[in-house]
């Protein structure tokens, strides 16, 4: 934006200043009502009956099982998506090949598909009456209504996060550094490890954070494939709903506050990353 355009409308008149103040207040009020208040209310409700009630609710058998399951699901889904995301971004950004745009579209697919559909496709494929249902049953393998199904649905939903973060960043950086490394005699693997990876590490970390937040917070897809067995196949978001429906509001909000806490940590880590490595990350925003 050039200064010529900006100078005129904002410089004169008390009316303009008032107008600005009103706009700022409106924005603040909006943020307060839509974001800050609900977030605060989660913590207020969680501690309504004191710290002991909060701790009881979080350490109660089913809640604890839900927390453990959520961590296990994220611990499986995030590393797999990390490897996949890196590989996909690397091949898309650094190489030319047929079907590249098709691959990009496929990677974006989970973003555009409703989470409910993401869950239902697994029921249709692996459910007792699904395409592979009979074979799986004969082999004694349970996919839907078990931890396996929850992991699969979570991987599907969080699939694009890391790849989408890395592709623009890697494209921005181009291939010159890699070409230099290869000319100097480095192997392909070494080039990736010593040149490509260090260049994208902050973007990668950022993608992992987002991916992890979604993996732990996913409700829709997981709800379809979970079967809602208490203490076995309920993740934290599902457990929150169950507790809420059982009028256990302190319990529901206690578990919800853990999720909200996770969101806050993610947000702070994200802000720190942006503040410290803003330039690199901004490259990925420009697309």
């Amino acid at each position: 934006m050039s200064a010529v355009i900006r100078r005129r409308p904002f410089q004169t008149g008390i009316g303009t200043i008032l107008f600005r103040i009103v706009l700022v207040l409106l924005a603040l009020a909006f943020i307060g009502v839509v974001i800050a208040l609900p977030l605060a209310s989660v913590f207020v409700e969680a501690f309504r009956k004191g710290t002991d009630a909060f701790l009881d609710a979080v350490t109660e058998h089913d809640a604890w099982a839900a927390i453990k399951l959520t961590l296990i699901v994220a611990a499986i889904a995030v590393p797999l998506n990390l490897v996949f995301g890196l590989a996909a971004a690397w091949s898309i950004a650094k190489f030319e090949f047929r079907g590249k745009s098709l691959l990009i579209t496929l990677i974006d697919l989970p973003f555009s598909v409703s989470p409910v559909v993401s869950g239902l496709i697994y029921v249709l494929l692996y459910g007792a009456h699904g395409w592979f249902g009979a074979e799986l049953q004969a082999a004694g393998i349970k996919v839907v209504f078990s931890v396996t199904g929850i992991v699969l649905a979570t991987i599907f939903v969080t699939f694009p996060f890391i790849a989408r973060e890395l592709i623009p960043l890697m494209q921005e950086q181009g291939t010159t550094e890699e070409e230099a490394a290869l000319t100097l005699g480095a192997s392909g693997w070494r080039t990736f490890w010593n040149v490509t990876l260090p260049n994208v590490k902050w973007g990668l970390l950022y993608g992992v954070l987002l991916c992890n937040a979604r993996a732990m917070g996913e409700f829709g897809a997981v709800s379809v494939v979970s079967g809602h067995i208490r203490g076995l196949t309920n993740t934290m978001p599902l457990h929150v709903e169950i507790l809420y429906n059982e009028y256990d509001f302190v319990g529901a909000f206690a578990v919800a506050s853990l999720l909200a806490g996770l969101a806050l940590v993610t947000l702070i880590a994200k802000s720190l990353l942006e503040w410290r490595y803003g330039g690199e990350l901004a490259a990925s925003r420009r697309h």
Partner: peptide, 8 residues
Amino acid sequence: RSVIDGLE
């Protein structure tokens, strides 16, 4: 529905 789909 869930039991039909394989909830044991």
